[in-house]
Computed example of a mutant assay.
Amino acid sequence: MSRIHDIRLAGWAGIIPVFTIAFYFTASGTLEATPPLDSPSAHLQTFVQQSHIAMTWQVGVSLTLVLYLWFTAGLIEATHVPGQSQIPARLVGWGAATVMALSCCCFAVYMATAFQGELSVNSPDLIRALLQASVLLATISYGPMALLLLGGGLLLRRSRVLPSWLATSALVLAPLIGLLTFTVPILHGPLASGTFISLTVGMVLFTLWVTAAGIALVRWSYRAQPTLPDTSSDPLSSSHAARMDQSS
Rank of each mutant, 00 (worst) to 15 (best):
I7D: 05
A10K: 00
G14D: 06
I16S: 04
I16H: 07
P17E: 13
V18W: 10
V18K: 05
A22F: 06
F23R: 07
Y24T: 15
F25Y: 14
T26W: 14
T26Q: 14
T30M: 12
T30C: 01
E32P: 03
A33D: 04
P35I: 03
D38P: 00
S39G: 00
A42N: 08
L44I: 07
T46Y: 02
T46L: 03
F47R: 04
V48Q: 10
V48S: 02
Q49C: 00
Q50K: 03
S51M: 01
M55D: 06
W57A: 05
Q58W: 09
T64V: 08
L65W: 02
L67G: 01
L67W: 11
W70F: 15
A73Y: 13
G74M: 02
L75Q: 01
L75I: 07
S85F: 07
S85K: 09
P88M: 11
R90I: 00
V92Y: 00
G95E: 02
A96P: 07
L102H: 11
S103T: 14
C104N: 11
A108G: 06
Y110M: 07
F115S: 12
Q116Y: 12
Q116M: 15
S123V: 15
L126N: 10
A129E: 08
L130R: 00
L131P: 01
A133W: 15
L137K: 09
A138M: 04
S141K: 08
S141C: 09
P144F: 04
L149Q: 08
G153K: 11
L154T: 01
R158Q: 14
S159V: 03
S169W: 14
S169T: 14
L171K: 14
V172G: 03
L176T: 13
L176C: 10
F182Q: 09
F182D: 12
F182C: 13
T183R: 04
P190M: 08
S193G: 04
T195I: 01
T195L: 02
T195V: 02
I197C: 08
S198D: 13
L208T: 05
T211N: 03
A213G: 03
A213Q: 01
G214E: 03
I215A: 13
W220E: 08
A224Q: 12
A224V: 02
A224K: 05
Q225W: 02
L228S: 12
P229R: 09
D234A: 06
S237F: 08
S237E: 06
S238D: 03
A241I: 04
A242Q: 12
D245E: 14
